[in-house]
């Protein structure tokens, strides 16, 4: 029953992405409205999960979450091709992890090669964001299931 495993994984990833995306959007809005994120309960959670306030990035996390959840609902209602959503969800998650890894490389070069003033306090921890750690989860799962995504047409 490998589809069941995939469904559970997609459920977990979907909820995770949507949750993180929501937090990111809310803190993003807070920042725009009040200028800073203050020290609310929300920002404490965001800080603990390395979520920077950013409305658009949050929307994208929610979108990836929706792709996973769409897959779950299809598989759940018996459509085997719902696997496609899990596959694409993983791809998207990898693409955005890649984007932020490259962005972090840029920051790293700023801090250590150019010694820019704005980056004096930059450390590798600052580069960590949900796109990256969620991407690592996706990567591990993908490597494990690599061969099993091709489907016989019904």
């Amino acid at each position: 029953m490998s589809n069941r495993g995939k469904m559970l994984f997609a459920l977990f990833m979907g909820c995770g992405y949507i949750l993180i995306g929501t937090i990111q959007i809310i803190t993003g809005i807070l920042q725009v409205v009040s200028g800073d994120t203050g020290s609310s309960y929300m920002t404490a959670v965001a800080g603990a999960l390395f979520i920077p306030p950013d409305i658009v990035a949050g929307m994208i996390l929610m979108l990836i979450g929706c792709v996973f959840i769409y897959g779950v609902s299809e598989i759940h209602s018996g459509v085997r091709e719902g696997i496609a959503y899990v596959y694409v969800g993983i791809l998207l998650s990898l693409i955005f992890a890649g984007i932020y890894m490259l962005a972090a490389t840029g920051d790293f070069l700023e801090a250590h090669l150019l010694n820019s003033e704005d980056y004096i306090n930059w450390s590798v921890i600052d580069a960590l964001r949900p796109e990256i750690y969620m991407g690592v989860l996706s990567l591990l799962t993908y490597l494990k299931w690599k061969g099993s995504f091709e489907l016989k047409k019904s």
């Binding site: 792709v67 769409y70 091709e81 496609a84 959503y85 596959y87 694409v88 995504f149 489907l151 047409k153």
Partner: peptide
């Protein structure tokens, strides 16, 4: 023409 290829899978989602 029996397999659903990766391309088919991607299509299914991207044309949703």
């Amino acid at each position: 023409n029996v397999r659903m290829t990766k391309s088919d899978m991607i299509d299914r989602v991207l044309t949703n």
